[in-house]
Computed example of a mutant assay.
Amino acid sequence: MSPTTVIAHRGASGYRPEHTLASYELAVAQGADYLETDVVPTRDGVLVVRHENEIGDTTDVAAHPEFADRRTTRTIDGRAVTGWFTEDFTLAELRTLRAVERLPRLRPAGAVHDGRYGIPTLDEVLDLARRSVTRAGGPVGVYPETKHPTYFASIGLALEEPLVAALRRAGMDRSDAPVYLQSFEPGSLRRLAQVTEVRLVQLVDCSGAPYDLVAASDPRTYDDLVTPDGLHAIADYADAVGLCKDRMIPRRADDTLGEPTTVVRDAHRVGLTVHGWTFRRENAFLPAELRSSTDPADVGDLAAEIRAFVAAGMDGVFTDNPDLAVAATP
Rank of each mutant, 00 (worst) to 15 (best):
residue 88 D to E: 13
residue 84 W to A: 00
residue 142 V to A: 02
residue 230 G to C: 02
residue 100 V to D: 13
residue 11 G to E: 08
residue 191 R to F: 04
residue 148 H to V: 13
residue 57 D to V: 12
residue 145 E to G: 05
residue 71 R to P: 12
residue 123 D to Q: 11
residue 310 V to K: 13
residue 214 V to W: 05
residue 6 V to S: 03
residue 181 L to N: 04
residue 275 H to M: 06
residue 110 G to R: 07
residue 329 T to N: 05
residue 74 R to C: 08
residue 40 V to H: 01
residue 17 P to Y: 05
residue 45 G to N: 02
residue 1 M to E: 07
residue 319 T to E: 01
residue 175 S to R: 07
residue 92 A to S: 08
residue 220 R to P: 09
residue 188 S to V: 04
residue 167 L to D: 09
residue 5 T to C: 14
residue 219 P to C: 13
residue 18 E to D: 12
residue 322 P to R: 09
residue 56 G to M: 07
residue 9 H to K: 06
residue 204 V to C: 09
residue 174 R to V: 08
residue 108 P to K: 14
residue 78 G to I: 11
residue 275 H to N: 12
residue 164 V to C: 03
residue 66 E to G: 08
residue 307 R to Y: 14
residue 104 P to T: 13
residue 159 L to S: 00
residue 60 D to C: 03
residue 227 T to M: 00
residue 255 D to S: 15
residue 323 D to F: 05
residue 288 A to K: 10
residue 249 I to L: 10
residue 250 P to R: 07
residue 294 T to D: 15
residue 177 A to T: 09
residue 48 V to P: 01
residue 16 R to D: 13
residue 198 V to Q: 06
residue 198 V to G: 01
residue 163 L to S: 06
residue 101 E to V: 02
residue 62 A to N: 07
residue 11 G to K: 03
residue 297 A to Q: 03
residue 316 G to P: 11
residue 76 I to W: 10
residue 255 D to R: 14
residue 186 P to M: 05
residue 263 V to P: 00
residue 156 G to C: 03
residue 120 P to V: 13
residue 301 D to N: 13
residue 41 P to Q: 05
residue 309 F to I: 01
residue 279 F to Q: 12
residue 243 L to P: 08
residue 72 T to D: 15
residue 149 P to W: 10
residue 288 A to M: 09
residue 77 D to L: 10
residue 146 T to P: 05
residue 33 D to V: 02
residue 320 D to R: 06
residue 244 C to H: 15
residue 281 R to P: 06
residue 115 G to A: 07
residue 22 A to Q: 07
residue 329 T to I: 01
residue 156 G to I: 01
residue 236 D to R: 10
residue 59 T to E: 06
residue 306 I to M: 04
residue 118 G to R: 05
residue 283 N to S: 06
residue 299 V to G: 03
residue 307 R to T: 05
